[in-house]
Amino acid sequence: MSNVIIQTDALTRRFGTRVAVDALTLEVHRGEVFGLLGPNGAGKSTTVRLLNGVLASHGGSARVFGQDVAAQAAQIRRRVGVLTETPTVYDGLTARQNLELVGEVYGLEPAQLPARIAEVLAEFELQTRADDKVATYSKGMRQRLAIARTFIHGPELVYLDEPTSGLDPEAARMVVELVQQQAHREGRTIFICTHNLDEAERLCDRVGVIDQGRMLAIGSPAELAHQLWQGYRVVIKLAEPLSDQQLQSLGEVTSRGDANNPPTLLEFSLPGLQAVPDLVSALCGVGARIVRVDPQHHSLRDIYFAVRQRHQRSGEGQ
């Protein structure tokens, strides 16, 4: 069985003269949580629509589960769950009726459906309000129901479009936790579209940064940080500053200080985290007294804005 779940090659979609998705090429692997990051209107939702055969492409190709989306969209959709940005829950129906609809359309066995619905209602803590009209639900409850209906048929691949959009912090945290619980079950693959970078940082194994339909960068946060900053930064706090001679013996190092304020903070650029123990040994070797070793973490926020800045600079340079 192939490990590649989603594969696009120069996938393109236009609306009139506007190119919404521009020669998008990406791969998403089985079991990973992939985040498509970008501002509003970047082409994230259009990409999800293209990958589900809800929109037809104007160029390139897309394969999901190894099947051609253009030719086999219905078969693909059967194995997929989609949480749209505005949750698709029907106000005039109860939670149970909403789940029955999805279960029946996805072809769950009639004999097993009531038990599966009860299980999902319990899992998403909706059982006490299961027979109330959704119109009476809070926004957080509606979102929980929307996520429940996304997962009820046990999809192998789940698209989540802005899953915490418009939720208060508490409801957003709960949604992220629910997604985390569901994400790594049975090798399930999750594709999240978001502009919420903190949420993406918590959930995603790999990310792609998209803008104006174009993929600007793709990889794990660590890989992207490595590409952007050519190495891993480590900051070391010393008890006393080192002499110039001691510093020179350490090779390439940035010291944070000046003549009046001798440096006790040293910054190193290393090829990888595995080089940290060697550095600590070298420092001890020159007599440094180490207070703290602080490998610098580039947040997804740093990465996202660095990618966008790099893209803007390259655009200005052309």
Partner: peptide, 14 residues
């Protein structure tokens, strides 16, 4: 208007 149509379009129904 209720923004539920998109969800229906993602379902396995021709």
């Amino acid at each position: 208007e209720r923004k539920t149509l998109e969800g229906l379009l993602y379902m396995p129904i021709s």
